[in-house]
Design a protein around this nucleic acid. Structure first.
Lengths: 140, 140
DNA sequence: CTTGATATGTAATATCATAACGTTTTGCGC
DNA sequence: GCGCAAAACGTTATGATATTACATATCAAG
């Protein structure tokens, strides 16, 4: 037994590299680039970008991590543990870098409606709002 | 007088570089990366990526070109000429590479509703569906 | 214990984007 | 026209992100 710090795995045991990558993403207060993650894990033995990208691929497949397309960066999923979720949206503050994950069933449904009407078979959905979070908007 | 081939400029005259970049995007049947555009314009005198990126920046500012975030690539806007438009969505076929631009007022409104409820001040919205277009889904 | 699938290590390379210069062109008031 | 400021341009170098290719190691099932 290897007593992991905690378990987000949906029953799927993470490897050491995967757990390390997920760990830094959970500790971070915003999205991290793959190369930032690499730098944070140098002292844990990481040497090459591919170690990060491979772990990220798996974590994304498990739904534990999301990629923010408009930032080329990654965040840990903050959904209640183990909750299956469909499409997710992000609000990205361009001032403080914070990312809020949210999910709107109505939006997802309407995009699905459009897809059905066009015969488009959707596999993944990207929804990202860029702007200012409440705190930064007030400060401005 | 330099007789441009045609005018999508909303009254804003495009420079030679901007017109060349817009031209290749309009002729393309799908998104092009900045470096693909560069290669297509070598014989027109383009030598460096920055020439492409600068033209793209301006064209995006004018709303004539969109960036597909999940592809790091660019498409010309296919809206009826001169039509002001808010947020736009894209359906990207992972098989044939085709991109369909569409706009759903209901989706835009609901995202705006979410933003207002959270005090988030949205400046830009990214909506991209990845999947298979009707033709490719049938062929599969 | 063998075997196949998954994960890993490492180097090299491909792809995407911008910084920092200086120069040229353009719009525009005079 | 002339002078000026803003915008666009050209060029080199560099930074940032991501993948290919190949060898090795680990794990889980029969």
């Amino acid at each position: 037994m290897n007593s992991p710090t905690h378990d987000h795995t949906h029953g799927h045991k993470l490897t050491r590299n995967q757990a390390l990558v997920l760990g830094v993403l959970e500790k971070a207060d915003g999205p991290l680039s793959a190369y930032s993650i690499l730098d944070l894990l140098r002292e844990d033995g990481f040497r090459a970008p591919l170690q990060v990208y491979r772990a990220l691929d798996k974590l994304r497949e498990l739904g534990l991590v999301h990629r923010i397309e408009s930032l080329n960066a990654f965040v840990s999923c903050n959904h209640p543990a183990g909750q299956a979720h469909g499409a997710v949206a992000f609000a990205i503050c361009e001032n403080c870098g914070g990312v809020t994950e949210f999910s709107r069933q109505d939006v997802v449904k309407q995009l699905a409606d459009w897809a059905r009407s066009e015969g488009f078979e959707a596999h993944a959905t990207v929804i990202e709002l860029r702007g200012l979070c409440e705190a930064c908007a007030k400060a401005a």
